[in-house]
Write a protein that binds this DNA or RNA. Structure first.
Lengths: 396, 396
DNA sequence: ATGCTTTAGTTAATAGATTTAACTAAGTGG
DNA sequence: CCACTTAGTTAAATCTATTAACTAAAGCAT
């Protein structure tokens, strides 16, 4: 489960400095308006150390000073915030049914976004198209003068844990694509970190990293779209994204929840993806791949068949949530993906099932909160941008 | 997913020193016979740093020097090994059907072991019994002169991630037991680290930490006994044991693999534990709780009913293995627990199912190796000892 | 208004860890 | 016997964080 941001095994003084700088930056990210004194208390570093590092981060445009924070009967501290004016993070999402790009501030605010609803064909053509979109973004007056910290790209399939290679995207027909290498010639001037990750991993990372308020201890993001997958993020200052030995962590679409059930395209039977996924719902309702799923379902109105299919899919989603709860046990579950557009007929049964059963094992303990992102169009792209920032923060 | 050995967020020079010391120790553990030069190459530390730290570890009895390692055309290096002579690690396992204790060397060699087959009653009585067994061990001439680094205790249920509290052990009837606090008065003189963990977590840790040769990148240990659970370990020098927000990571016994299936004691239906676990097999074959499961099944010989039940349990185990593969994606799976005593009628179908399907998703990539521990009586206790060592290594 | 107290933040000296560079040690091979 | 290679040690240098003393800036009591 090596992570992109795994802590090193051993280190020198420079490593220690990076660690502390990243820790201080992470504290401000999670506690906007924190003062130097707050940071020192939180990180266990001394005021002197914090003061010096903060000074350097102010000069480099990573932090900015804000108003005075009154303290009870003492000198007020100076509030610190992430500097939203000098840097920009780029994120791109290659989805089965479209391409999305975003430009973000260090605080996760989306400055610019673009979306085209064309299905990707070959990696080369996709790279051409994506590069166009990114160039338009890069040249936009809103961000043209900012320093770009890098680009994160997400893909709908598992990525090898050690190298940025998409292993398999069944819904794109791509196998073993080193997409960053395909894209790089199209954007020779785009410097900074270049990252490639699975779409659900990136989305999970973004929800965690740019969480409003103090982030939960760990998050699992469930991405229900054409297929279904999930991403896990955990850690304090250094969010970890476990990928597993083959990048298959969170490939819940192919966990078996109905032995002897329907055949899945993976060759197995009873995979979760045969119950809750875009193509499973299309198959069950006879909706062609060319049609827009949301529109087709809306057109059928209050059809009992539709209701039954959505309810069963929702219950399967609830089962998956419960299984994730008992396997990864995250502090928060986030539901996203295009299937969320299908609304309460799918979402309500999922939540109801999970709510009813999550505490069967440990009675009386805290409930695991579930957040539903009804429109997650740019969630993965923004998450990819978050990963760029986390990477760059270590080098700041 | 905070781990017992989670890297700190920020640190001072002392933290850096501990990190590097632990890294050097970890290198020798994984590469017995490594020279100072090997360690320097592997950790990226300089020869000077390695030399100094090794000197300190030699003096404190953590390392010992061995023979000269010939190098091609240069001065031979001095082989280094974990010092097996000066320290001892204690591990204890509270199982549903017995108590086990072990004493280990730093290299994981079991010096002493004891086993009683009495079911634990109350925490207090269990502590009394366990303390007796540990005192006998501690007074044994083989280890009486060694410095004890601490004691690890395992329990058959989830442990809270931040505090050493057993949340729930359904098969013992224990709820929210701070067992170390119960045990401590019985062993006031036993100093060093005191740790409490879930039995599967500890077993996974031990299989990883004391692995012969270079350990895999991550391990999932599946413990199939009265119930069924699993533990995950990952990391290089600092093995991480993700526990989750409630300590439920790896609670695969309550993942649902058969919606609408049999009722589980947790209140839900179709849990894995209703298919593959000691009590599920007993229920299916009408074997009383007082009988020994292995003996009862052996007594029935080649009974078709028995064969069918074991085969179905094995297939459910294979399903669980596949689901873990697609959720945690470890580099290695280890099967253990008392159910392994039931033999090939159970194990073969599990392995066959997993082998047949593990690569459906990523064709042509490496297979995930599976190791079966046919007698895992002391595996968890030894793993608890391993955790003691990992903890102590940071303070060495 | 003044002074006391409290908290925030900076500065210079100190301590401590790793690195650098030069060295010694101990082999092989021509 | 000498050149070469690799292992390991040593002392000086470098760099980081801490310590301790300081300044800064607020509230509050007198």
């Amino acid at each position: 489960m090596v992570s992109t941001f795994a802590p090193q095994a051993a280190g020198d003084l420079n490593f220690l400095k990076k660690l502390n700088r990243s820790s201080i930056l992470g504290t401000v990210r999670r506690y906007p308006g924190a003062t130097r004194a707050d940071i020192a208390a939180h990180t266990q570093l001394t005021k002197a150390t914090v003061g010096g590092v903060v000074q350097a981060l102010l000069e480099r445009g990573w932090l900015r000073e804000g108003e005075l924070q009154p303290r009870g009967g003492g000198r007020p501290g100076r509030a610190l915030y992430l500097d939203d004016a000098h840097h920009v993070l780029l994120g791109a999402d290659i989805g089965v049914r479209g391409l999305r790009v975003v430009a973000c501030t260090l605080g996760g605010e989306v400055l610019l976004q673009r979306y085209v609803t064309e299905a990707p064909t070959t990696p080369e053509e996709t790279a051409t198209r994506l590069a166009e979109m990114l160039r338009v973004l890069r040249d936009d007056p809103v961000i043209v003068d900012r320093h770009c910290l890098g680009l994160g790209v997400t893909v709908p399939g598992p990525v090898a844990p050690e190298q940025p290679i998409l292993r398999l995207a069944p819904n794109l027909g791509w196998i073993d694509v080193a997409f960053l290498e395909v894209l790089r010639p199209h954007l020779p001037d785009l410097d900074g970190a270049w990252l490639l990750d699975n779409e659900a991993n990136a989305a999970a990372f973004g929800e965690f990293y740019f969480h409003d308020g103090i982030p939960p201890e760990s998050i699992v993001y469930i991405s229900a779209g054409s297929g279904i997958g999930s991403g896990l993020v955990t850690g304090d200052n250094y969010p970890l994204v476990p990928r597993g030995i083959q990048g298959l962590v969170g490939e819940i679409g192919h966990t078996i929840v109905q032995p002897g059930g329907l055949y899945c395209h993976c060759g197995n039977r009873g995979c979760a993806e045969t119950l809750v996924s875009g193509w499973a719902i299309r198959a069950a309702l006879g909706i062609a791949d060319t049609e827009d799923l949301e529109a087709a379902i809306a057109a059928r109105g209050d059809d009992p068949d539709v209701n039954a299919v959505l309810r069963r899919a929702g219950e399967a989603l609830g089962t998956l949530m419960l299984n994730l709860h008992h396997t990864l046990n995250p502090a928060m579950l986030v539901l996203g993906g295009s299937l969320m557009h299908l609304g309460e007929r799918l979402i309500a049964p999922a939540l109801a099932y999970f709510e009813a059963h999550q505490n069967d094992l440990l009675r009386g303990t805290q409930r695991v909160p579930v957040k539903v992102i009804h429109d997650s169009t740019f969630t993965a792209a923004r998450g990819a941008a978050a990963q760029v920032m986390a990477k760059a923060a270590l080098e700041a």
